[in-house]
Structure formats: structure tokens, C-alpha cells
Computed example of a mutant assay.
Amino acid sequence: MNAPQSTLGQVAPTEAEFRAIAQLLSDTTGIVLAPGKTSMVQSRLAKRLRALGLATYKDYIALVSSEGGRDECRRMVSALTTNVTHFFRENHHFETLRQVVLPPLLEEARRGGRVRLWSAGSSNGQEAYSIAMTIAELAPDFATLNLRILATDIDPLMIEQGAKGSYPAAALEAVPEKLRKKYFRKEGENYQVVSNLRGLVQFRELNLHDRWPMRGKFDVIFCRNVVIYFAPAAQALLWERFEEQLTPGGYLFVGHSERVTDGKHSNLRTAGVTTYQLTNRTSRI
């Protein structure tokens, strides 16, 4: 006899079940679920148990561990990952972008060069659109240049929201009034990013723990307040992978509480507050 729908997910996972869920999350994404987060796991996964009609976390673990449970595993990751973002978060990075990083890149783009920026762990797109607005203010002709921003996140719901580019008024509080008027249009209760700015950003679902399909390299990578959730070994590997993905002289921006591991073979050097530049590379791909 099935448990009543109202009781599904009401019992917290046992310690063993919590460890199993934490291991699945770590294996899938590299993210560490700290001990003591049992109530958080229950509150975020109870809805999934109810939707699936599953009575226990043991049943849920069996499902997401199975070959047929891949889609549900993605939903589990989506539920357990944290999406905290806002426009122009850690604004000093955007000042560095505006004053130091973008001017030579825009010159290169106007000479016919290719310029690529990556917002990794982009959440619902506010970081990527902050980058886009910074570019548009410096280069009103951005649509004519070979210049694109890739925005990726592990959560498909965040990618969908970012691609729509629609945000409530409260989300725009950090956007200067001049930029709000220029790059947003009111549609119903929300504000829509204007179409030409949306065209600058391409949104894709991507698990940073998996293989990366991008073939070209990036002049700028933003990955902020993401790596902090990874285990140390996964953090070190991710820094190495970002370094390999940068063009010579390219910049990596990380979160306020994150620091790039100083590996003996690393060519990433401090270039400002939580800002790194790739040096000592001689070829550009």
C-alpha cells in the first residue's frame, strides 16, 4: 500500500541516506555537501519524493543511481545546488573589465579578431548580462564584432531563465538607472533584457565536473562563488582546466572567498582582487 501523498518526504533522511546523497552529488558535480545539511536535503528533495510518489529516500537514491534515473539525477542536482546572484555582484571585477581588460580586446575585435568571454556557473544570467552591458557601454557597435559571451550553468531551470532574460524589478536594484533605461524594457510585472543585448549571450547547460565541449579558447572567464563548493582536489583540477581554456594574457575572475591554487606549473598570476591573468604563453588558438 502506497504512503499518503501528504506524508511523502516528511521524514528526514537517515545518516546513511544523507551520506549516499552527498556521495552522489560529489560524484556527479564535484560539489561537497557538508555534514549537518540533513534538514536542507529534506526540505529541497521532499517535493521530488512527492512528485514521484516515493515513500523513502532509499527508494529515491535507488532511482537516481539507476541508468533510467539520469533525468531525475539532474533534477536532484538542480534542487541541491545554490543559486545566489545579482547584477554587478563584486563590482570591482566589472571596473577591471571596463578599464583594463576590454579596451585591448575591443581593439582586437575591430581589427577582425575573435573575442570570447565565459560566465561559468552563470545561474540565471545576471552575471552574463552585467558583462554584456559593460561591453555595450564601451562598444555600441558590439553587434558588428566577432564577440560573444557563453553563459553556462548546471541547472537547466537557471539556463532557461537566463535565455529569457526576464527579471523582477527587485533584481534590477543594483543596475544603475542609466543602464536600466537603456537595456531593459518593462513587460508585465517583469523587465526584459533588450533583444540585441540578449543576442550577445549564448546560454548552455554544462556540468563543470564533466567534459567541456568548447573547442575555442576564452579571453575572459568569470567563475565566481562556484568552486568554493567543490572538494579541494576538484578545485585544483578546475583551476588547471580554466588555465588551459584561456588565451595567452587572458583573465580569470573568481569569487571573493576563492583563491587559485599556486601550482608549480601554473602560469596564472595575480592581476587584482580575486583576478588572475595567464602569462608566459606564446601561442593563441
Score class of each variant (00 low, 15 high):
residue 2 N to H: 09
residue 3 A to P: 05
residue 13 P to Y: 01
residue 15 E to G: 04
residue 15 E to W: 01
residue 17 E to K: 01
residue 17 E to H: 00
residue 18 F to A: 02
residue 28 T to K: 07
residue 40 M to W: 01
residue 42 Q to D: 02
residue 43 S to P: 03
residue 45 L to A: 03
residue 45 L to F: 00
residue 50 R to S: 14
residue 50 R to W: 00
residue 51 A to Y: 07
residue 59 D to N: 09
residue 61 I to E: 04
residue 62 A to C: 05
residue 69 G to E: 06
residue 69 G to S: 07
residue 71 D to I: 08
residue 72 E to A: 05
residue 74 R to N: 07
residue 74 R to C: 07
residue 93 H to G: 11
residue 95 E to R: 15
residue 99 Q to W: 00
residue 101 V to I: 15
residue 103 P to S: 09
residue 108 E to H: 12
residue 110 R to I: 08
residue 110 R to W: 10
residue 117 L to E: 04
residue 122 S to E: 14
residue 123 S to H: 00
residue 123 S to F: 05
residue 132 A to N: 12
residue 133 M to G: 11
residue 133 M to W: 12
residue 134 T to F: 01
residue 134 T to P: 13
residue 135 I to L: 01
residue 135 I to D: 03
residue 136 A to D: 07
residue 140 P to C: 13
residue 142 F to W: 07
residue 142 F to V: 11
residue 147 L to D: 04
residue 148 R to L: 11
residue 150 L to S: 07
residue 152 T to I: 09
residue 152 T to Q: 02
residue 153 D to L: 10
residue 161 Q to I: 05
residue 164 K to W: 06
residue 167 Y to M: 05
residue 171 A to F: 08
residue 171 A to Q: 11
residue 173 E to W: 05
residue 175 V to W: 04
residue 178 K to R: 15
residue 180 R to S: 05
residue 180 R to A: 04
residue 184 F to V: 10
residue 186 K to S: 05
residue 189 E to D: 11
residue 189 E to Y: 10
residue 189 E to L: 10
residue 200 L to Y: 06
residue 202 Q to S: 09
residue 203 F to P: 01
residue 203 F to W: 07
residue 206 L to N: 08
residue 209 H to P: 01
residue 210 D to S: 12
residue 211 R to W: 04
residue 211 R to N: 06
residue 211 R to C: 03
residue 213 P to W: 02
residue 214 M to A: 13
residue 214 M to C: 13
residue 215 R to W: 10
residue 215 R to S: 13
residue 218 F to P: 06
residue 218 F to E: 09
residue 222 F to Y: 15
residue 226 V to G: 12
residue 227 V to L: 13
residue 230 F to N: 00
residue 232 P to W: 01
residue 233 A to C: 05
residue 235 Q to N: 03
residue 245 Q to R: 15
residue 258 E to V: 09
residue 261 T to Y: 13
residue 261 T to I: 10
residue 262 D to G: 09
residue 263 G to D: 06
residue 263 G to V: 07
residue 264 K to E: 15
residue 266 S to M: 06
residue 267 N to R: 14
residue 275 T to M: 12
residue 278 L to K: 14
residue 279 T to C: 11
residue 283 S to M: 12
